[in-house]
């Protein structure tokens, strides 16, 4: 027997969902009823944020954030000397590794990073690089590790990761221009929902937007959006939410 081969039959069929499951999906309730969402929030409320720094003793700086069931841990190592073979660079470099824990999502994640996780890593670097004074760190590299322990809304995970990573960088004492506050928005059934949970993301025709913003400088550091929607209201609410998250960060800092 060749154990390197998959022994199963060549073709397989997804089991037919039971009638009840189909019926249940068809009868998904409207996302907002009487101005309230399933967890009692209004459409433009974000979930309560829990944020702590310095939880990882080995790291130069770290942060842990919870948004409802979304739980993200983030650690910063560095700045440290760039390895010889990576060449000379006048500016510091930022490197990020974003990973969902294998048990974080409904479907088990593979321990090796998939394309989505790789892309999220790049997005985090792009969202944070403008806030860091990389010009003051020649020949150095900052490593950033983000682990999602629980995923309650993929977009919210990414937004939480950006916010937490920014706080972790601040915790590590890296020179920064401003903190980056990020937020996620969704559009379900023509209804704007801020900070969607996984249940709300499961609606068909779900649209989302992730916005990272430096409120004190008035600079957008990242924007990721899909699905056709009207832009101005979404951007306005997104901006307001970022400011809200930012104020929370500032309160935490004090």
């Amino acid at each position: 027997m060749d154990r390197r081969r998959v022994q199963g039959p060549e073709t397989s069929v997804v089991p037919l969902p039971t009638q009840e499951a189909l019926a249940k999906r068809a009868a998904l309730p409207a996302p907002v009823q009487d101005g309230k969402r399933a967890d009692g929030r209004g459409p433009e409320d974000i979930r309560p944020i829990f944020l702590r720094t310095g939880l990882i003793s080995q790291a130069s700086g770290s942060a842990y954030i919870e948004l409802g069931q979304t739980k993200v841990a983030c650690a910063v190592y560095g700045p440290r000397q760039l390895k010889k073979q990576q060449g000379f660079s006048e500016q510091g470099r930022l490197y990020c590794e974003f990973k969902f824990a294998t048990f974080a999502c409904k479907k088990r994640r593979h321990p090796i990073r998939d394309p989505q996780e790789k892309e999220f890593s790049q997005i985090i670097v792009q969202a944070l690089a403008p806030s860091i004074r990389l010009d003051r760190l020649p020949k150095s590299v900052i490593d950033l590790y983000v682990t999602v322990i629980e995923n309650d809304g993929t977009a919210s995970c990414l937004a939480a990761a950006i916010t937490a990573a920014s706080v972790a960088l601040a915790d590590a004492g890296v020179e920064m221009l401003d903190l980056v506050a990020a937020t996620s928005l969704g559009y379900v059934h023509q209804q704007l929902l801020v900070d969607c949970s996984a249940a709300e993301e499961a609606y068909q025709q779900h649209t989302d937007l992730i916005l990272a913003y430096m409120p004190s400088l008035g600079q957008v550091t990242h924007l990721l959006h899909r699905g056709p929607v009207d832009w101005p209201p979404m951007a306005a609410v997104g901006g307001a939410c970022c400011v809200h998250v930012y104020l929370l960060l500032m309160m935490h800092a004090q």
Partner: peptide, 29 residues
Amino acid sequence: RLHVSVNPAGQVCAAQKNGYGSIEPSLLI
């Protein structure tokens, strides 16, 4: 940079910022 995807109905289907810089909201619009 800002990648903007637009369908024939004139709706923005996807937008994404890219690169290591930041953009002011007015310029973004």
